[in-house]
Amino acid sequence: MSTPQTDPTKIPLQQLQQQRNIMQQELQEMKTRHRSMMTASKRYLESLRTVEMVESAQDGQKMLVPMNDSIFVPGELTNTSHVTVEIGTGFFVKRTIPDAKEYLERKVKNVQLYIERVGVNILAQENNLSQIDEIFRARVQMVREQADAAEQQA
């Protein structure tokens, strides 16, 4: 987070504008991160629901197994006490239903904490930015008035 290190009412206008651009860029990056975290959270929640579905199913439950997006073959569940869960970077672990749920719930919690933190930062950044904008506008106005006054005197 770049907080303005110099007094925004005193530094040269051009520099102030640069600072504003940098802050805007940072804000965009934060929003991108926020969005991707929301997607991750949604994915974990969906997985959690799927695990709950398996939990509630009986062994021998008939189902159609997707071979790809459009081809299915008939199958049946032979083990409803375990699922194989991705833990990232292509690694999967076979876990009991309660363990899988614990893992997914933990992930959801972590991601949501992160989302909250980024959300707070986004608000703070937006606040800073609108303050800078205000100062910027006021200073441009002031320069203009001074120029007008000088013109009238001359």
Binding site: T84, E86, I87, G88, T89, G90, F91, F92, V93, K94, R95, Y103
Partner: peptide, 26 residues
Amino acid sequence: ENQAVEGELKILDEDAEVFKSMGPVL
């Protein structure tokens, strides 16, 4: 991401079944 995976592997029991996806297969 890899640190997160390392953390997950660390808390597994020794006899846990781990798979690695290689293309379409585990």
